[in-house]
Design a protein around this nucleic acid. Sequence first.
DNA 1: TTGACGTATTCCGTTATGGGAATATGATTG
DNA 2: CAATCATATTCCCATAACGGAATACGTCAA
Lengths: 117, 117
Amino acid sequence: MARAATTTDAFNAVAEPRRRQILDLLAQGERPVNDLVELLGLAQPQVSKHLRVLREVDLVHVRDEGRQRMYRLNAEPLKPIHDWLAKYEQAWSERFELMDEVLEELKETERDDGSND
Amino acid sequence: MARAATTTDAFNAVAEPRRRQILDLLAQGERPVNDLVELLGLAQPQVSKHLRVLREVDLVHVRDEGRQRMYRLNAEPLKPIHDWLAKYEQAWSERFELMDEVLEELKETERDDGSND
DNA sequence: TTGACGTATTCCGTTATGGGAATATGATTG
DNA sequence: CAATCATATTCCCATAACGGAATACGTCAA
């Protein structure tokens, strides 16, 4: 087996920086492909290809507008990532680091005998 | 150019479900490799390989304990993912959906003429 | 219809993945 | 030292990504 397809889920789709950039741009509002091409400084085919991936994991929605195609963000598929991260969030919070120190101190104390009196 | 290496950053490392599982297990505390092997039901070499990737992006730390190797979670590299997601969080919150509805209603009102009285 | 514009698809080459299987390395025990 | 346990590395294979270049498709204007 090889690496999971980028279209497997949001985790994989979003691992690519360009696709994150695209989402960031779309977060500001609907945009046609050529806008993205210009803003990203990428070749048009590459942008279309990235958009295809994002479409397949439902991170963007498209709407036809004449010859243009308006892409719009759909953030919902990002939720599972956020949910998964939730349990780690405390790990980088200041309060947690503080608790870590306290635990260290407790260990020290125990090692000193346990009966401190 | 090919797809970015899994060891490029946490985004890529964590796109693989097994590696997320490993982090989930380590979130409960330090563990030797064989523990993970058993809990994951994977072959030992695969686990070691996944751990290597996680090590390279600094998502785990190792400590030698006799012949065992104790792996410990280091969640900090996950922070960039969380930070990136922050701007999308509102997109799936109830309050935002509510605001969406209100905006829709406003549009309706405007379309009706603007002066409703 | 023809041409031009906006976008999508296809083909290419390079690179790396992840699992399986086998084997290598390191530490401990007898 | 030899045997064993714990873990890491290597080799193999099938699969696919990403960028570049070329091209196909769909719509609108003249």
